[in-house]
Amino acid sequence: MQGDTQGLPLSGVRVLDLSRVLAGPWSAMVLGDLGAEVIKIEHPERGDDTRDWGVRVGQTETAYFNSVNRNKRSITVDLQTPEGQQIVRELAKTIDILVQNFRFGGAEKLGIGYEQLSAENPRLIYCSISGYDRTGPEAERPGYDLVVQGEAGQAPLKFGVAAVDLFTGMYAAQAILAALYERQRTGRGRHIEMALFDCGLMITAYYGLEALLIGEDPPRYGNAHPSIVPYGVFDAADGPLVITVGNNAQFERFCREVIERPDLAGDGRYTTNILRGRNRETLLPELTRELGSRPRRLLLERLARAGIPCGEVAGLREALLSPRATQGGLVTQQPHPHTESGTTPVLAPPWRFDGERMPVRYAPPQLGEATQAVLQSALGYSAEKLAELKDKGVI
Rank of each mutant, 00 (worst) to 15 (best):
P240D: 14
G136M: 13
L124A: 05
A173V: 02
V147W: 04
D238E: 04
Q250N: 10
G153P: 09
G246H: 15
A179V: 01
F251I: 09
I129F: 05
E182P: 04
I112F: 11
P240I: 00
R141F: 01
A173S: 13
L117G: 02
S128H: 06
I243L: 11
A152D: 10
S128T: 04
N223F: 02
A236E: 11
G189Y: 00
I176T: 01
V245H: 01
G143P: 10
N248I: 08
L124D: 02
G131K: 10
Y231E: 11
A205S: 15
R190K: 15
E216M: 14
D145P: 02
V242K: 00
S227R: 04
T168Q: 14
A119K: 11
G215Q: 14
P122M: 11
R141S: 01
Q174T: 04
V148P: 11
A205E: 15
T244I: 09
R141T: 12
G153C: 07
R253D: 05
V242C: 12
P226S: 11
R183I: 05
I112N: 01
A237Y: 09
P230D: 09
A179R: 01
E252S: 09
E115D: 15
A211Y: 10
Q174G: 03
E120S: 08
Y207K: 14
I228F: 05
E193C: 08
E257W: 07
E138Q: 06
P156A: 13
G169T: 00
L166Q: 11
I112L: 03
H225D: 15
Y206W: 14
G160Q: 12
D133M: 15
D217L: 10
T135K: 14
G189K: 02
C255H: 03
F167W: 03
A173P: 08
A249W: 06
I259C: 15
R183L: 12
G200K: 07
R141C: 04
Y231N: 06
A152H: 10
C199I: 10
I112V: 15
L157W: 05
P226A: 13
S128I: 03
V147A: 12
G136W: 13
G143E: 02
F159S: 10
E216P: 03
G232P: 10
H191A: 05
A195H: 05
G222E: 08
R185K: 15
E182H: 10
Q116K: 07
T244K: 14
R256C: 10
Q184A: 11
I203G: 13
D165K: 02
N223Y: 10
P226M: 08
L212K: 06
G113C: 01
S128R: 09
H191G: 00
Y206F: 15
Q149I: 02
G131S: 12
Q250K: 02
